[in-house]
Design a protein around this nucleic acid. Structure first.
Lengths: 193, 193
DNA sequence: GATGTATGACTAATGGCATTAGTTACTCTA
DNA sequence: TAGAGTAACTAATGCCATTAGTCATACATC
């Protein structure tokens, strides 16, 4: 056979995303993706660089989708209202796109994969802007953003793994946790005014 | 050959731990562990139930080691001092025992593996006691413990993956993040008195 | 001390997955 | 319309986990 199935990079990513979000990132094997697309596994190598290439594409795609999600979550909001909205949006993203969420956990070094690194940095920049707009100096903002990222990531990761035990009151726990960090951010903003 | 190499469950866990902490959890394959012990891979099945069994043993071992680490970190300390010490100990544990730390991330359901579940719950109970001893009612403590766990796990996971970008000032970021949560815990304790 | 059973090692074989090499057919351009 | 590139393919390799079946040795029992 010559060329036949109209496989595009987009269709590969789409198929892989569907599998990863449904059955987990590890289920998005080259074999599974190829099956889904109706081609043989080696044919995928015409489009990407093996499994690591697929993971990379998922990470870029996921980062872009997360960025869009954050942008919509912020909308016209500012300050703590924007942060609250981002937190909720992040949680919803992690629930709806488990595979994509997991795909951008292994962070690349800035110099070894610039495109991926920048894609993953975009959502962080967006949040950073919110803090800077609140008047928090960069030297403080960097710590607070890391705290917020850590809390969100840790919560969503534990939640996905059912690491909290009884799922009772998890929504409330999330709100409490987010408010703790936002409280700290608010305090930093207040003392910078 | 009949029986020869004096393989015990302890020596298997020890070998697997060494590999996992050095090269990552994924590197602790049955093949690698068997090689390390000087036996063939299938022989391991006389001691444990395949790869999932090995992971389980690592998770139990890791949880017990973490518990001991927390106990030593607390020592005679109470309240926020104890929490600060636990946070630092947790971070050090994650750095020294990357493989073990990752091994107890996939949480089992309480009823499907009671032994593992309880081993993993012990360190959480220990922290819970600190909060309860501070006079925080259980209904509030549950949220605060989840927040603390989420923050610590998220931070250590992101740090291990170099997800924070530039490693500049990470120690300070960790302290800021921990203090934010501890501040919230302190406030809850104060309002309960 | 002989015997017999359970243990803990082994070899052999299977299957899933990623990967590489080499092949072929189709499509599009010159 | 001929040639070049593309995108599929088959075939083969290697790593890993896993299962089945074998066999020697250690230990307990008589």
């Amino acid at each position: 056979m010559g060329r036949k199935a109209g496989i595009t990079l987009e269709s590969v990513v789409e198929a892989a995303t569907a599998i990863a979000d449904r059955d987990g990132l590890d289920a998005a094997t080259l074999t599974a993706v190829a099956d889904e697309l109706g081609i043989k596994t080696p044919s995928l190598y015409n489009h990407l660089e093996g499994l690591s290439g697929l993971r990379r594409l998922l990470a870029i795609h996921g980062s872009q989708l997360l960025l869009k999600t954050f942008e919509e979550a912020i909308g016209d909001l500012e300050g703590t209202e924007a942060l609250r909205s981002i937190a909720q949006a992040d949680r919803q993203f992690a629930r709806e796109h488990r595979g994509l969420y997991d795909s951008f956990l292994p962070a690349p070094k800035p110099d070894e994969d610039t495109e991926l690194y920048e894609a993953m940095a975009e959502p962080v920049f967006l949040v950073a802007h919110v803090l800077l707009d609140m008047g928090i100096p960069q030297s403080e903002a960097i710590h607070l953003i890391r705290a917020l990222r850590a809390l969100l990531h840790g919560f969503l990761d534990l939640e996905a793994r059912e690491g909290f035990g009884m799922p009772v009151g998890i929504d409330a726990s999330f709100d409490v946790a987010v408010e703790l960090i936002i409280g700290g951010i608010e305090a930093a903003a207040a003392s910078s005014r």
